[in-house]
């Protein structure tokens, strides 16, 4: 699902590259944790994979047809994200002006699929993340755990081949974090997608299939 090779990034004016010659893969149905100390470049690596920041070198092949994100312009990268990638963030990032069902429908709309044709699909997805009947509710009325469940549903609704998650349990209490993590791992595996999860949590990392540790020397 994701194959990274020779990836390098240096910020302008920096004495040394943030990282260079990174090489790793994430297979279909595989969940990989990316760990490392603060400032080592985990989020930047995730941004490069998502096409939100340009890499200086390397290839980032995504999906069964191995489209190279590193070679795409801004618009093509956005289109690839819309069709192949799902996102889960630490701060949930649920649109406050749309209700739960509308939030989940956003990726469908971005892919040109009329959400009105799929109310049952969204309702089923909500039920699978434990939010049955939550469709018409507004984000302001939800707890942190519920918001993250909405975000997971949104990340999976368009059946992406890759899930990118940045500290998905960082804002949750331990019990809710456990529930959300279990749900995320279960749904990713059920969808047979690959997932790259950036985390500081040893517990989260150990729940994943494989751990990649990023430090100034590279990936281990």
């Amino acid at each position: 699902m994701l194959s990274v090779a020779g990836l390098g990034k240096r910020y302008p004016g920096a004495a040394r590259p943030l990282f260079s010659e990174l090489r790793f893969t994430v297979g279909a149905g595989e969940i990989v944790a990316l760990v490392g100390e603060s400032g080592v470049g985990k989020s930047t690596l995730l941004n490069c994979v998502a096409g939100l920041e340009p890499a200086d070198a390397g290839t980032i092949l995504i999906g069964p047809d191995a489209v190279d994100m590193a070679r795409l312009d801004e618009a093509a990268a956005a289109a690839l994200r819309a069709s192949r990638i799902g996102f889960v963030f630490q701060a949930f990032h649920v649109l406050p002006t749309l209700d739960v069902a509308q939030n989940i429908a956003v990726p469908l709309l971005l892919n040109g699929i009329d959400a009105a044709e799929h109310p049952r699909h969204i309702e089923e997805l909500l039920a699978r993340v434990g939010l049955a009947g939550f469709g018409p509710r507004w984000p302001a009325s939800l707890s942190g755990g519920e918001l993250q469940r909405v975000a997971i549903a949104r990340a999976l609704v368009h059946r992406p081949s890759l899930i990118l998650a940045d500290e998905p349990t960082g804002n949750l209490d331990p019990r809710t974090a456990d529930e959300v993590l279990s749900l995320l791992l279960e749904r990713v595996r059920a969808c047979h997608a690959g997932a790259l999860i950036v985390t500081h949590s040893r517990h989260v990392a150990q729940a994943c299939d494989r751990i990649l540790a990023l430090d100034p020397e590279g990936l281990r």
């Binding site: 998502a50 939100l52 801004e74 618009a75 956005a78 289109a79 690839l80 994200r81 819309a82 069709s83 990638i85 996102f87 990032h93 649109l95 406050p96 002006t97 956003v106 990726p107 971005l110 892919n111 949104r154």
Partner: peptide, 15 residues
Amino acid sequence: STQFALLGVLGLPPR
């Protein structure tokens, strides 16, 4: 701006 950024991350094209 955060909402627009989110939509951009989710794949809303720049134009």
